[in-house]
Amino acid sequence: MRRTMLFLPGNNAGMLANGDILGADSIILDLEDAVSPDQKDSARILVRNALKYLNYRGCEVIIRINDIETPYWEDDLEAVLPLKPDVIMPTKVSGADYIHRLAAKMTEIEEKNGMEVGKTLIIPLLETTLGIENAFEIAKADPRMAALYLGAEDYTADLRCKRTKEGTEIFYARTRLVNAARAAGIEAYDTPWTDVDDMEGLQKDTELAKALGYTGKAVINPRHVDVVNAVFSPTEAEINYAKEVFAAIEEGKRLGKGAVSLRGKMIDKPIVERARQVLENARAIYGGEF
């Protein structure tokens, strides 16, 4: 479950030290855009030491590495991968080749360090028009692929249009990306909301992403975490409905019925699957039994 993926600058020791208490399901320790070229090496050391010495309890750690076209990405991987981060996030991914190269390098480092191969997953940032067109190929490029993540700022620049709060210009990218991810059986995460103080806009934008099929969103400010978490958390009504689904199935079994219906609607496989996921998320978020 990654309702929120919170970006933290890889060169900010204070933020790194407190990354796990900000309420995000995942934190992205950023070696790319947040770090200027003259600080790439120090940020790399800082992030490596954070992974080594800090215990990010109950919080997934994602490392955003530099673009494969820069001189930094291999050093980034060599520094952080041996410390077993949960996920590597490559940027500006435009085709499956990129993932092949990255995965091969990850495997090489894992083998060299005597680590289990394939444990660290990949969530690429798709932020080019070509990347959006190739979304499905990218999504199924490697078994490490856990999700696709849309980056709308660079994407709209590539598209040569203005990024707006309404987001009409990224509607195609949003739907194409989520469709590709689902077709490949992986998750889809939405682009961050960039106006730090506009909480109402954040709420609306997140609700739109959820309505389109997204299950999480990147955030660039800790103050956005709660709003996004709330939108992607199952509601009480959803939890109750999910419980009813399983109760109805149990009841059907007891009565020896082949097909079971609830509130006048047949319970089919997708409904069961969704109910299972709702209860699983509810357990992860609220604790206890559902």
Binding site: G14, N18, I21, L22, G23, P222, R223
Partner: peptide, 8 residues
Amino acid sequence: TRDPVGLK
């Protein structure tokens, strides 16, 4: 404060 730790 806008410090996320302080707010937490």
